[in-house]
Design a binder for these strands. Structure first.
Length: 178
DNA sequence: CATACGATTGACT
DNA sequence: GTCAATCGTATGA
């Protein structure tokens, strides 16, 4: 995807990401999956890491769109986001779940025989995304988001975000219907 | 400097 | 359904 595609507002990109492929190429292994669940976060959103301004951790969120924002969650898991919107805005889309497409055997090995990625932590584990990937460009390169021609669902399911207790009036969780 | 807590997951009752 | 794991970060003294 081109940079401009990511420069739109987070809720728009979040819905449009459904159906796209997330590809991770590393150590000669290619692993990919189709994105089926996302969540949008903006700077005026109390639930967003960017809400209280730029810090060392969320610096990438305030950088140019189309880059990966990876952080450690609960001291154990990693969560991957794609930065969206104008540079300096602090918007991002959390990649919550995807359906395995390629490299299923690799995903199975990383995930302990279960090649599913139905949660942000599991997704990163299956694809091998870690904190070293914070800030990488996903418009091309080892970690990238590509369009294989599959259109986003016409009627994505949306609702309140998971694990969020504030701003529940923003239905910014998007999911591909089963 | 001290401390409370989280955009989660998996194991256990 | 309940709960511990585990540590970087944000926040306050």
């Amino acid at each position: 995807m081109a940079r401009a595609w990511f420069e739109r507002d987070a809720p728009v990109v979040a819905a449009d990401l459904l159906g796209k492929l997330l590809v991770v190429e590393r150590d000669g292994l290619v692993v990919s999956g189709r994105i089926v669940e996302t969540e949008a976060y903006t700077a005026d959103d109390p639930a967003s890491h960017s809400f209280r301004g730029r810090t060392a951790r969320n610096a990438v969120m305030f950088g140019p769109a189309g880059h990966l924002y990876v952080y450690l969650s609960y001291g154990i898991h990693r969560c991957a986001n794609v930065v969206t919107g104008p540079e300096g805005d602090g918007q991002a889309v959390l990649l919550r779940a995807l359906d395995p497409v390629a490299g299923v055997d690799t995903m199975r090995r990383r995930r302990g025989r279960v090649p599913i990625a139905d949660g942000p932590g599991k997704l990163c584990q299956a694809l091998g995304i870690d904190l070293g990937d914070d800030g990488v460009d996903v418009t091309g390169g080892a970690v990238r988001i590509v369009d294989d021609g599959t259109p986003p669902p016409a009627a994505p399911r949306s609702g309140p975000r998971v694990g969020i207790t504030v701003a529940v009036d923003r239905p910014w969780r998007f999911r591909t219907p089963a």
